[in-house]
Design a protein around this nucleic acid. Sequence first.
DNA 1: CCTACCGATCGGTAGG
DNA 2: CCTACCGATCGGTAGG
Lengths: 217, 217
Amino acid sequence: MSAALDRSADGPIEGGSRRLILDTAARLLRGGGYHQTTLREIAEAVGIRKASLYYHFASKEEIVEAVVNDGVRFVHEAVVAALAQASDATPRKRLEAAIRAHLTALHGHGDYTSASIKVFTFGATPTPDSVRRVRRAYEDVWRALIAELQEAGALSPQRAPDALRFFLLGALNGSTDWYRPDRFDLADLAREFTGLITHGEQGGAAAMAADLASANR
Amino acid sequence: MSAALDRSADGPIEGGSRRLILDTAARLLRGGGYHQTTLREIAEAVGIRKASLYYHFASKEEIVEAVVNDGVRFVHEAVVAALAQASDATPRKRLEAAIRAHLTALHGHGDYTSASIKVFTFGATPTPDSVRRVRRAYEDVWRALIAELQEAGALSPQRAPDALRFFLLGALNGSTDWYRPDRFDLADLAREFTGLITHGEQGGAAAMAADLASANR
DNA sequence: CCTACCGATCGGTAGG
DNA sequence: CCTACCGATCGGTAGG
């Protein structure tokens, strides 16, 4: 939570109120989406009256926007960190690290990330600009990674990068509809998914050669 | 529309009323999902009063259920038909035909199919049994196809079939979030997606050999 | 298929 | 952070 957003000096409010509201909203949005989640539910779960939410936020949309952006930023940072840590790994391993980080952020931590996926649309109102910006920034990470992997030969250069990105992110985010912690292991899933798309038209030989070249540099 | 469901003999109702309601509901559900779409909207778009909807359906849920099931059945039949027509093709071509049929049904015909994807959850009420059955029946088509392709070597037998199915169907259905007719060609997308997952750990050589063997039998 | 109506609930505001 | 209230709208029903 940034200090600029903390209004604890402005009124009858303790430190974590705003964050508590967002935590609660994230949990409910994750389950119900935009329209199903009501301000009364959020307020009741927090332990305050509904009208009190308006001391912290100007509207329902502002609450949802904050949750969604936090969720995407969290995945974004997790993937960037994983790629930085795997900067010397093979292209394949870098892809696997990015996929694992995305899946882990999506399922392993809190509710913000899942809520972000669930709230793809903001109902009748258009998607806020800030949300589009934050999403776009994260997509750029994958744009760059896919370009890198295609150059390195770990992903077939014959595949259209946009289709590849849409396909992969769609498959990863779709996991919110079927993933169950007791049934899947996130590291296993990441390995499976990486194996699924790691070979191009030329097949595994080229990718293996690329892996070796990368490991030796 | 089955004759058993046509109640045109029961009251002041013309032939296509029920179907017109479902067509309209499908269009609105596709855009807004379960909670955003209201009975008033549907009625107004049809040109009747909201209360009149209850002459044809017992509840909002019944309308949505009919749309969702019709949508899944439509994709199901399209994919089965495509596979039947490609029964002599290579495993790769069969997969591509199934993917193309799924994408075409999803984006090329009416609103039922997209509405089915959009209405993944039925709000607070649990997903109706009929919906679960219809969805499951369609998943079984992919279960069988994936098993067939893994046996034939077109998909790596090292990949967990369930993860593969979730991954692929998630990616295909996620296309409702980004697909634009003016930007993508469905046949091109199908070819891209097929190329993406068509090679296993052994790489393209094994798959190519399998294709040749299949083509020669 | 209609008019008329229902209680419940929605997001949001007034005023403290 | 509260009590009290708002108009609008929801899915659904009565009765024809």
